[in-house]
Design a protein around this nucleic acid. Structure first.
Lengths: 202, 202
DNA sequence: GTCTATATTTGGATAGAC
DNA sequence: GTCTATCCAAATATAGAC
């Protein structure tokens, strides 16, 4: 599902490497290294060495380093856009369900989000950071309204930001095991921001 | 207070540049650029050009790029360690006061934290990220206890992480204006994590 | 304390053989 | 589809003059 690969053959003649799909292997190695060291600090040489191929071989599959990153980000992009489109379609969105779905997506793409986190500045120029910011704004609007005041927005920022952080830092099993409470915690923050449960503090 | 500078002279003979303390100017320019573009993507040439000096001149004041970064991080380090030492000393620490003080420190050092955020991976090797993680663990312990279970810890993670994010993303005046509610939101998350206010969700 | 070189390394990227 | 060889640009860092 990740790349439109061209073959089904793992029984080819004398394939130099493991299975058959070098392109997918490159993406896998790159995502791991980007997440560990950041995009900028990871060189193509390093990725190539990990797979025991040459730099030049990478350039057959991806036209540039940026191109590789863009391909990596595609699944998240698709996922999130689809989710947001669904929200726009339905009239009423229960906050806890919105938060829950957002958490799920973050968990599913935790590796990429970690890479994003490791090297935020580099990723700005491929438009990734802008995308994420845009999604967050749209979610804010769904949760607290288009023109919420600052305190209300703060609740949304902490709720969504907290969920995203958790998804990245928790191991996948932990994230799954504690999904319920994660959402509950985020919801508490959201409500405290929106409704003056603790008035007279601004 | 930032660097142990050596002079008091702004009236020296024919000082090439603005005031007198080039070292401080370098730090200021570097922090701004690191925060804007990240550590890795900011070259020493760029910093030098901004101040209209040469790269080589930088090497007189700082032995390396890493050294410059370390110097930049010193004030935060001192501030946070002092705060944590104070917490260890006092017997009881009210959660909202702990959260508030943490927020204040984050706001005060927002520029550095932003740089940290922009290029997390590069900053790992100077030990900065490890430090931040260590501080967070110690704060977790203060807030929810040394051996809290995962749900409780999640409350602390979201509360502290959210405050840190807010401090970085908000303009200083906004941060000051909404400090009260920021702490209240974080506190709500903390409590929801610790006490099962919404039971049966794990 | 700052300058003009310059050394050294490493990165991304291309051409052309196999 | 992968390799060898190579180019080019840019960055960190150093040496030595002023």
């Amino acid at each position: 599902m990740i790349g439109a690969t061209d073959d089904a053959g793992d029984g080819s003649a004398a394939v130099p490497r493991t299975s058959g799909d070098t392109r997918a292997e490159i993406q896998e190695a790159a995502l791991d290294l980007f997440g560990r060291q950041g995009y900028e600090k990871t060189s193509l040489r390093e990725i190539a060495e990990r797979l025991d191929i040459t730099k030049a071989a990478l350039y057959y599959h991806f036209r540039s380093k940026e191109d590789l990153l863009r391909a990596l980000a595609e699944p998240l992009r698709r996922d999130m856009e689809e989710f947001l489109a669904g929200l726009d379609a339905s009239a009423r969105n229960a906050p806890d369900e919105v938060l829950g779905s957002y958490f799920d997506i973050c968990v599913r793409h935790a590796a990429l989000l970690l890479a994003l986190l490791r090297d935020l500045s580099s990723l700005t120029r491929v438009g990734l950071v802008e995308d994420v910011m845009g999604w967050r704004r749209r979610l804010d609007a769904v949760l607290v309204g288009e023109d919420a005041d600052m305190p209300a927005r703060m609740g949304a920022i902490i709720a969504l930001g907290g969920l995203q952080d958790l998804a990245v830092f928790l191991a996948p099993e932990q994230a799954r095991a504690h999904r319920g409470r994660a959402v509950a915690v985020a919801l508490a923050a959201l409500l405290e921001g929106a409704g003056p449960r603790t008035p007279g503090m601004d």
